[in-house]
Design a protein around this nucleic acid. Structure first.
Lengths: 137, 137
DNA sequence: CTTGACCATGGAGCATAGTCCATACTTATA
DNA sequence: TATAAGTATGGACTATGCTCCATGGTCAAG
């Protein structure tokens, strides 16, 4: 494990393209756990590593996929809990994969519906418009 | 256009599997525009048609795909505005399709990443763990 | 004509996900 | 050593998307 140079919160904000306030919000929620630097006196500065950047990217990704921060936190903690058991890790990953596949199926259905509608209009709106009910999503 | 029998809000709630309060909230937002029945006196009852059921399903679908109610409203109004211009209608549909395809690409990237990680673990975690940064999402 | 189920309206309250201060301390630079 | 820039903390505030409730009117059955 190569340790990249730690960074302060403003640099981390640039690295992740997230507002500082949002980062602090995620820390308060337990989604990010930066180390504390020796600097900063009574309120030590938080130091972020490269893996925190990855974690932040993962959070944003999971968010776009419809997970709430609470769910993301739960998933991440479950992941950490079984970090030293490959079987458990794979199990958690498989669950996430299954959920994403469901979402993908719904998305595909929606795309089929919209494409069907475009075709139907291009065909001059013949009888039998594509019906959303016919697409499993 | 076959007109199905209209229904009152509680029946509409059953048909869409949405709480009555949520339906009223959507109406207040302008996402649903039921007709008014002759019944109800000073506060006439709202009558829902089959197309409202479809609209409600569409709203929920768009929501799972990451649209806010405001965006959904804008899209729907744009759609209605160009309802009598097939070209405009197709344009709006293509925009929605493009956006969904982007989302699909991100989802696929995430799936690849997770699958790659499972494989990597099954292979006994050799050097070079899959890195999220390598997946464009 | 009463009673229970249903409807409308308006407003309060809540969870999520931030966003924005005010205050105060620390550090680097001049 | 003054000063600007960066940091921490706590709390207020906002937007979105509901959810709940009080009040009061309406309707259909008995």
């Amino acid at each position: 494990m190569v340790k990249g140079p730690d960074m302060l919160i403003s640099e981390f904000a640039r690295a992740t393209d997230l507002p500082v306030d949002t980062i602090r919000f995620y820390i308060a929620k337990g989604l990010l756990k930066p180390e504390r630097s020796a600097k900063g006196g009574a309120n030590p500065y938080q130091m972020f590593r490269q893996e925190d950047v990855t974690a932040a990217r993962m959070i944003r990704l999971q968010q776009t996929l419809g997970y709430s921060l609470g769910e993301i936190l739960a998933l991440n903690e479950e992941y950490r809990a079984g970090e030293h058991s490959p079987e458990r890790t794979i199990e958690v990953l498989q669950m996430q994969i299954a959920r994403l596949e469901e979402r993908r199926a719904a998305l595909d259905a929606a795309l089929s519906f919209l494409r069907g509608k475009v075709e139907w209009i291009k065909a001059g709106k013949p009888d039998g418009a594509p019906r959303l009910e016919d697409y499993r999503c």
